[in-house]
Design a protein around this nucleic acid. Structure first.
Lengths: 340, 340
DNA sequence: AACGTAATCGATAACGTTTGCAATGAGAGG
DNA sequence: CCTCTCATTGCAAACGTTATCGATTACGTT
């Protein structure tokens, strides 16, 4: 693993093979119009010197690079799942992947990060980009597919069916007998947050249970934002018998706050989350939650982007993926403690 | 999220501001020698047009880019942990991160992938690279830090203390009373595989237990490689009472094979792994394993690379990080079933 | 008024690659 | 022997940026 002097360039190869860089380029890219002799010469020089074309220079010159980009703000566990799906979709397609992460934005909540990341890449480095959980609108000179877009976005996107997922969660609670069900909402700029709230309201409406606005807390998907909201809900004399949080991160925070306040879960309070992150299975008690397959989201986003780039996409440009309810120990019929 | 015509370049800004690209460049990079008026002009044009400098062009021209690279073959759950550590170390340092993944290599076991990835990036795109679990030697014109290097490598690297970790695992089994302890080794080209095997042998030697070569199976860290080896060990009339696998992936495969063969874990067989991947806690029974903090590995690798790039590194160039034993349900004294 | 000096800015040559175009040469057909 | 064609190759201009160097201007000094 020696650190050697300077990278070997195309002109090094050209000099060694006694031809021009133009010819080397033709050989590297398998273009027609080079004699077999010359090809052999160049090939051998490339082999001997260990030459590999520079992604940077190629990108600058060419319009197509066969590299797709992905921009993300953080590397949560769900990001890895998305990446697995993306790589699966790209595997064998000839497209490579570049992930760009800005160190200044990490752990900092800054508006407009997607656009800045995107600009850095989409000069010419990538043929298109996937944006994971953006906070705002984004423009780009190349195709972009958004995972979990902002509300009202018309950009190509892949999202879980958050409305139906939330409905199933609330129906689960209603089925257990709960009637006073609190809700902790997510960052309101995101489509997913809205849809989950809609699902909550619709499920209640369908069951004939009136929506009590004072039972709704406005978080932003950041777990910390849920703490004061949970405290407020649990401090009330007429506190809810169940709380549905719009993300697992926030739901886990609710569990923690409940423990601090001496409220027992699930006996005194049922809790449901959304996402099914790995931590939820570890929680004590296990968190009942709505599973959205991030792997699938990544897979479909990459598939869409790939054909958007090659211009052969024909399906829906806004994709909705199914969810499923995962029931664990954090939910039980209300008043379990009283009856015990 | 509109897809607009062409990316806005520096000359667009120059034209809009009525200056040359040289001046725009000076303003962008905060160089001395531009009048306050001009700076304001240019700034406003940049703002108006939404200009952001192209990473590609900058990289091609400049020697330093303030971007570090990371190359990986797969996105396992441990990769995400490494990434978290890397981002933490880079946060606020002014260095951005680019991760490069080749779709052709994904899920395919090809020699030399690290070198190919590295060449693509290190033309000029990055100031240095982290390589995760390489399969061979690597050369580069910029600094490289290796996580889990090949045996005998002298390159800067960060590794868990695999020898001591393996020793603690085997000592745990010995302490429970096991004497016939099988071992499933990892890919022999990797330093980590060797060290874990050394730890296994040393722990046995220290306890005065002779090493039985027929109890050692040669895997390659790929879970599938462990299946026939586990079957061979468990089919013997004098089968071991415990198996120590050099990775959790292989250990989980041992659990699966045992179940297929009707061998009960931990009653008929104790199993220990290495890595502590999230899945191990979910397994039934929970897998006893040696925890190596991939977060910490990523963090330290990034810290080292950063100062290698700026030329201010002074510590050891080969770093060894501590491990810790995590005891779960997959280990118990031998003969538990007989006594029950 | 003439000159020197410093501040500001623009033209231009790179960085490594691809590509249109022209040049060269060989072989074929007359 | 001359032309025409075609295959093979090199030249040079891009791509968007930065660094060097020289040109222009403004200002203070004598």
């Amino acid at each position: 693993m020696a650190e050697v002097g300077a990278p070997v360039t195309m002109s090094d190869v050209a000099r060694a093979a006694g031809v021009s860089t133009a010819t080397v380029s033709r050989v590297v890219n398998g273009r027609y119009g080079v004699s077999a002799d010359t090809v052999a010469q160049v090939r051998s020089a490339i082999e001997r010197l260990g030459y590999e074309s520079s992604l940077v220079a190629t990108s600058l010159r060419r319009s197509r690079t066969n590299v797709l980009g992905l921009v993300t703000r953080t590397f949560q566990s769900y990001t890895a799942e998305v990446l697995k799906g993306v790589m699966k979709a790209l595997s064998g397609s000839g497209f490579d992947l570049i992930i760009y992460a800005n160190s200044d934005l990490y752990e900092t909540y800054a508006e407009g990060w997607e656009q800045r990341h995107l600009n850095r890449l989409s000069g010419t480095l990538t043929d298109g980009c996937i944006v994971v959980t953006p906070w705002g609108e984004v423009r780009s000179s190349t195709p972009v597919v958004v995972i979990d877009p902002v509300r009202g976005s018309t950009a190509p996107s892949v999202t879980a069916d958050n409305r139906v997922g939330a409905t199933s969660a609330v129906e689960h609670l209603l089925g257990l007998g709960h009637r006073r069900i609190g809700f902790i909402a997510g960052r309101s700029s995101l489509e997913s947050a809205w849809s989950r709230e809609e699902g909550y309201r619709e499920a209640l409406a369908a069951a004939g249970v009136p929506v009590d606005p004072t039972l709704i807390g406005r978080g932003d998907f950041n777990p910390e934002s849920a703490a004061p909201l949970a405290r407020a809900l649990l401090d009330r004399p007429d506190r809810p018998t169940a709380i549905f949080a719009a993300s697992d991160g926030m739901a886990l925070k609710v569990l923690q706050v409940a423990k601090e306040l001496g409220v027992s879960v699930p006996d005194d309070l049922s809790v449901v989350g959304f996402d099914n992150i790995p931590e939820s299975a570890f929680a004590e008690p296990g968190l009942t939650t709505v599973d959205q397959s991030m792997y699938r989201l990544g897979y479909e986003a990459a598939r869409m982007l790939k054909s958007l780039v090659t211009g052969e996409w024909e399906g829906q440009r806004q994709m909705l993926l199914p969810t499923s309810l995962v029931v664990r120990g954090s939910t039980t019929p209300p008043g379990a403690a009283a009856r015990a």
